[in-house]
């Protein structure tokens, strides 16, 4: 409870800081809208030309795009501290300040920053989700709503975990940010489309190593009434838990790496 209060107060302060420059903020939000709008446009144009992708119809494709987009950008919005601030804090030694406070490092890092500009991307994603659900004529039930919420929560946790990798690399002063991006941003781009269009190595990558397919796509396919690989319905509620498993593993690695943190600067 106390941590939630701390989080809310931090967010209030962050927003205060960001809104000090409203013109810049608006322009950047607009840029985000154009960016995600462009991605969405690509899907629309593909549907326009090809009509369908394997067994997936236009509505299905929008739905897959939407669930990934909303989940990813929500995580980026609230996990900004992990992906943006943390690596630079490690390099500048500013992380010392967080270590001097009686709170968990990850809690403080998450409280450190928020990226409200992502709201534009989230809006595009939500539009895609609604459009997809309409076009695919999804009959919403309580269970389906639950599956959607669980998928987004677990997907978000998985993405947060993947963001931790960059932090771990930075602490160990490994400079391979681009390769980490292949997993996170590459995972986002790839899994905007259903996993079964990919050849086996890519499927393995996004099922076993970075399980976007399990956390997001299996429940999405269940909601659309076309179970992934013909798996039973309960799979849509069990497989997303892999997000939590991945996060826990990466969190342990993160904790381990923190012990090797060598604060730079005097």
């Amino acid at each position: 409870m106390d941590t939630v209060k701390f989080y809310l107060r931090s967010m209030k302060m962050q927003l205060k800081c960001q809104l000090q420059y409203p013109a810049s903020f608006l322009l950047q939000t607009l840029a985000q809208l154009v960016m995600e709008g462009g991605e969405m446009l690509a899907v629309i144009l593909i549907v326009d030309r090809f009509d369908h992708l394997n067994q997936w119809t236009a509505g299905d494709l929008y739905f897959f795009f939407g669930i990934m987009s909303v989940t990813f950008y929500l995580t980026e919005c609230f996990g900004r501290g992990v992906t943006g601030s943390f690596p630079s804090m490690v390099r500048s030694g500013q992380l010392d300040t967080l270590l001097l406070r009686p709170r968990g490092v990850l809690t403080q890092v998450i409280c450190w920053a928020i990226d409200p500009r992502r709201i534009a991307c989230i809006a595009v994603g939500t539009a895609a989700l609604v459009m997809g659900s309409r076009m695919a004529a999804v009959q919403w039930t309580f269970l389906k709503a639950l599956a959607l919420i669980e998928a987004m929560a677990m997907g978000g946790i998985l993405i947060l975990g993947l963001f931790l990798i960059e932090g771990i690399f930075t602490i160990r002063s490994v400079k391979s940010v681009e390769l980490v991006n292949a997993l996170t941003y590459g995972g986002r781009s790839a899994c905007e489309y259903p996993i079964d269009v990919y050849p086996r190595p890519l499927r393995v990558l996004f099922t076993v190593i970075a399980p976007f397919a399990l956390t997001l796509q299996c429940p999405a396919a269940y909601i659309l009434g076309k179970p992934l690989y013909g798996w039973p319905d309960w799979a849509a509620f069990v497989t997303p838990l892999s997000g939590l498993v991945s996060f826990s593993a990466l969190y342990l690695l993160f904790q381990h790496a923190m012990r090797h943190y060598r604060s730079t600067g005097s």
Binding site: D2, K5, R9, C17, R101
Partner: peptide
């Protein structure tokens, strides 16, 4: 970027 009083009051929450 914020008044120092705001910083202090957040520190109060951090240190309970």
């Amino acid at each position: 970027d914020v008044p120092i009083l705001d910083s202090f009051s957040l520190l109060k929450d951090i240190y309970r």
